[in-house]
Amino acid sequence: MTGVFSWNLIADIRDMWSVAFMVNAFRAGTIVAVLAALVGWFMVLRRQSFAGHTLAVVGFPGAAAAVWAGLGVAYGYFGFCLAAALVIAALPQRGNRGYTEQSAVIGTVQAFALAAGMLFIALYGGFLGGTSALLFGSFLGITQSQVLILALAAVATLVVLALIGRPLLFASIDTDVARAHGLPTRALGTAFLLLLGATAAEVSQITGALLVFALLVLPPATAQLLTARPAASLTLSVALALVTVWVALFVAYYSPYPIGFWLTTIAFGLYVLAYAAVAGRARLGTRATHPIAAGA
């Protein structure tokens, strides 16, 4: 974006990191990548991508409202995303894993959230430049204190996720048996939606409300394609998200195009590569009976 690219990558990186906002962008991006990769892994497993997307979109009116009200953008993101998570959690659940009934309601909420966001922007006036940043992300001007808030929120989210992770996995793939084992599956679902809301709020601040998926869905989905071992899958998800964010920041710094585009393109490219590799291996039939079991 501002840098002049040379083919000496070491020098390029040194040049990039001499700029304070780029250092902060890398710090924030790293935090967000780890968080999104881990929370997103459970979201993909639980088939709650649509709920996750809605929570992210809700961050947009949240941020716009916060700007209009003269508060910090982070308050708007977190306040709206967590409130929306509670709303989705309160929706009646049909069946064990069927979110079919919810999807219409969630879609309604999503449409209204976008509309409300536009209203807040109109009310504030003179905010047009910021709109695209809220929707499609920006890594410019991430401050030291923002990085600190991101880090604290991420640590809190990940500690809770570590505590409930195993029962959450159980409740996600085997709800009835988990209940018979005395697990509060409904409360676990609510807790997870709150974690997802917090994560969406954090990731939105880097990727924008519309491109949260680049980090929340693609790395976990790619990892789950490549291996069926939960621990390996989670690790791979984090690695893919980190590669995506770091490469995207690097490229965005030296190109005139927005970070959101690069993030999504890299994550999507990795997914397509993984899909092709898995499909190709199955086609070759070399391991027809053990398609990808031993991966990673």
């Binding site: 505590l163 195993r166 029962p167 996995l169 085997d174 988990a178 084992h181 071992r229 899958s233």
Partner: peptide
């Protein structure tokens, strides 16, 4: 669903335990 059979069996053993294994 990309979770192995052994993982599903394992959940029956200690899937209700809180915290990381």
């Amino acid at each position: 669903l990309r979770v192995r059979g052994v993982d599903v069996v394992r959940l029956g053993l200690d899937g209700d335990r809180w915290g990381l294994p």
